[in-house]
């Protein structure tokens, strides 16, 4: 995306964002509470209008498209609140991911491979699952849309540290399959451990960007986000 801005009620929350994700790459957006990560994601997928700039996927302009058309164009977004269909089973949630097509066999295999728990719980209602399981289902449902770009907003929200680590291991394996990833995360060390590159968002603007390695060794990042004096 280029020079994008978005916000609420005419008030810009994020501004002048230049962001690029190349095919097969994992890119992290890091920043503290209220930095604007979620706002930025919502603008990319069309849940919020872009107030400036453009959003382009493989040369196709998605800037003014509504959310369901962005999804069909190949951008899958897993919000921190997950937005599953609570009264439907795991199976139906996954099938709706593929809507309007029939679920793709290989994709389904991939999902079960990443999250065997989902296969065991196919008949369970989504709303009755634990937070970690719901997160798996949300990612699984997003994968069923067969996206070109998968966006994860704080995949570790509400997860115990051990479960959060497991979640990132799944992200790692997903990346190994060649999936292009954009991940917003407050837990900077976790994010930098899987990302190729990262952007540091502060007060709605890109404060720094670079490869994960560069940022890990950047004194400012170490002080502000990695808890190193």
């Amino acid at each position: 995306m280029k020079g994008a801005a978005a916000g609420y009620l005419g008030q810009k929350v994020v501004e002048d964002i230049d962001l690029e994700v190349r095919t097969g790459e994992a890119v992290a957006i890091v920043g503290s509470n209220g930095a604007g990560k979620t706002t930025l994601f919502r603008a990319i997928v069309g849940l919020l209008p872009c107030m400036a700039g453009r959003v382009i996927l493989d040369g196709v302009d998605l800037t003014r498209r509504r959310a369901h058309r962005v999804a069909r164009a190949g951008v899958a977004y897993v919000p921190a609140e997950r937005h599953l269909f609570p009264a439907m089973t795991v199976k139906t949630n996954l099938m709706l991911g593929a809507y309007p097509h029939r679920p793709n066999r290989e994709t389904l295999e991939l999902v079960f491979d990443l999250f065997p728990r989902l296969k065991e719980r196919l008949g369970q209602q989504a709303g009755t699952m634990s937070g970690g399981e719901q997160q798996m289902l949300a990612v699984g449902r997003a994968l069923m849309t067969q996206p070109k770009l998968l966006m994860l907003d704080e995949p570790t929200t509400g997860l115990a540290p051990k479960v959060a680590k497991a979640a990132f291991e799944a992200v790692e394996r997903l990346k190994a399959t060649g999936m292009t990833l954009l991940i917003a995360e407050q837990q900077v060390p976790l994010a930098l451990s899987v990302a190729d590159r990262a952007y540091v968002l502060e007060n709605g603007r890109v404060r720094m960007e670079g490869t994960a390695e560069e940022l890990e060794h950047n004194p400012e990042v170490r002080r502000a986000y990695l808890g190193v004096a």
């Binding site: 997928v45 849940l47 369901h68 058309r69 977004y77 709706l96 849309t145």
Partner: peptide, 9 residues
């Protein structure tokens, strides 16, 4: 929102 995210209008 969930419906929109899987491509349902």
């Amino acid at each position: 929102v969930g419906a929109r995210l899987v491509g349902i209008s």
